[in-house]
Write a protein that binds this DNA or RNA. Structure first.
Lengths: 141, 141
DNA sequence: AATGCATATGAGAACTATTCACAACTGTAA
DNA sequence: TTACAGTTGTGAATAGTTCTCATATGCATT
């Protein structure tokens, strides 16, 4: 229990509260997740975690990510092309712009769009459980 | 060349113009696509097409769908859970509501949301190439 | 510190959706 | 009718993810 970041501590607490055991492998993955400010996929998280704790297997990465997702600590995104990518849940909800040339991911947030979505659903007799909004973009020159 | 629907004829013309051969298997698939008003996946399209032309293979279904997609005749969607689902391109662009309980797909269209998307992208120095907007909803009671 | 046991682990098999390779077949233009 | 490039079905290959199972380990209880 040495120098875990505050963010990591928070995740550990979340796990313990959910009755999920805090193992070496999970601590490694949590640290890596807390440090990531991109949106890495499972293989990339596995690589990063192995540097901290060489015994983590890819299966454990997937298992832990699924558990964290269920606890609401992590979000899973399935952007076009390639596999799922992950990010730690942070305060405000947001959607994503994907640079189709570089693959870069940019976050944005629009209350107006969210409102319009709710309105549209309501008019059709539905309520929005969750949504997915991705803008595949090219840099303007 | 007997009773193909108008819609199917249109697709056949599109194929011929693109130099893509019009085979028995493709005619079967085109007919099935023209008739579908749901959003079937490749396996389902394969099943339906086999009733018309038993020799169609799943590989040909995928190959033809990709060709049609390239010609802009068909759209491919990757909704949450399960594989890609397809629909024939019709006049106006639209997005989708997915009933999380029944799996039903409902189409909707909002100029306002489209506009806001463009605005957001523009402010960040991007232009939208294409987007994906899906509302996962539950029926209100 | 030692114990007990439910949970987690790594390795590799299994699964799902999709694409590929290849030899045989077939539209289509001449 | 011919000729050949495009298309076919089959089965193997791929990619991403989940599962199985025997072993290992966190942690609540002593």
């Amino acid at each position: 229990m040495a120098g875990e970041s505050e963010r990591t501590e928070k995740m550990i607490t979340a796990l313990r509260k959910a009755g999920i055991r805090v193992t070496r492998q999970r601590i490694a993955l949590l640290g890596v997740l807390a440090d990531a400010d991109d949106h890495p996929d499972a293989a990339e998280l596995h690589n990063r975690a192995k540097r901290v704790e060489p015994t983590v297997s890819l299966a454990t990465v997937y298992r832990t990510l699924s558990a964290l997702e269920e606890e609401g600590v992590v979000h899973r995104h399935s952007f076009e092309g390639g596999g799922a990518r992950f990010e730690t849940t942070h305060e405000e909800h947001h959607d994503h712009i994907l640079d189709v040339e570089t693959g870069q991911v940019i976050e944005f947030q629009s209350d107006k769009i969210e409102q319009l979505q709710d309105e549209i659903a309501r008019e059709l007799g539905y309520e929005v459980v969750h949504h997915r909004l991705e803008l595949y973009c090219r840099k303007k020159r």
